Amino acid sequence: MTFSLLGRCARTGQIGAAGATSNIGVGARIQHIAAGVGAVLTQHRTDPRLGPRGVALLRSGCSARETVDALVASTPHHGWRQLAALDARGGTAHFHGARVKPAHNHAHGRDCVAIGNILANDGVPAAMVAAFAADPGAPLADRLLAALAAGEAAGGEHGPVVSAVLEVHGAHDFPLADLRVDRAKDPIAELAGLWRDYAPQVEEFILRATDPDRARGG
């Protein structure tokens, strides 16, 4: 009952994730990202421990494929898990456990991978990848949100979506954006609205952290 996508901007090196589900708190569980390293998604009967473990594997030099394979080998409950990884070079990989409930599917594109489970139909991940690829010159956050909206428009999941997340990392060891909506009637639209409000302030927040003498705010 989750659909999500990992994406990378080849121009800026930014890495991010967007996802939505019919459970509360999707942003607290599924996405695990490190600037300049890569990202991991862990969902279905989610084990959040696999996320940091996957990021550590990517940081050690493992490819996305090697990372997913190692995560699967490391957990005796892999039949319940759905995983994806994106490395800093844009390589991608996924895994569906044998007990992941249908409809489930995946799709890979340039610098992105989408996965989903308990979907309305198995075309949702492909719709997400197509939307992500549609405007490669756009900011990464915009592309991730477009992918999420396309996944919902393609059918989304069986139940009503109530939570959504957008997280993007750039050159620093803190996220450029980490926005979450929970227990909402239209969380994907609300998430897009949060990003519209937040985007003009991103550079100011970076200055406050890295060069506070030049920052304007308090």
Rank of each mutant, 00 (worst) to 15 (best):
M1W: 01
T2V: 03
S4L: 12
L5Q: 07
R8I: 08
T12P: 00
G16K: 09
T21E: 04
T21G: 09
N23F: 13
V26L: 12
Q31M: 14
A35R: 05
A35L: 00
V37Y: 07
G38Y: 08
L41I: 14
Q43F: 01
Q43T: 05
Q43M: 02
H44I: 01
H44L: 04
P52L: 08
R53K: 15
G54S: 06
V55W: 05
S60F: 06
G61D: 06
E66P: 08
T67L: 09
V68K: 04
V68P: 08
A70G: 04
A73R: 11
S74E: 06
R81T: 14
L83P: 14
D87C: 14
T92H: 13
F95E: 14
G109W: 08
C112V: 13
V113T: 15
A114C: 10
I115F: 09
G116Y: 07
L119R: 02
N121W: 02
N121D: 10
N121Y: 02
V129E: 02
V129A: 04
F132V: 12
F132P: 10
F132M: 13
R143Y: 01
L144G: 01
L145P: 08
A146D: 14
A147V: 13
A149W: 00
A150W: 01
A150F: 06
A153K: 09
G156Y: 02
V161I: 15
V162E: 10
S163K: 03
L166W: 09
E167H: 11
H169N: 12
G170Y: 07
H172L: 15
D173S: 13
F174N: 10
A177T: 11
L179K: 00
L179I: 08
V181C: 06
D182G: 08
R183P: 00
K185E: 11
D186N: 14
D186R: 14
D186I: 01
P187H: 01
I188T: 04
R196Y: 04
V202K: 14
E203Q: 14
E203L: 11
R214G: 12
R216V: 13
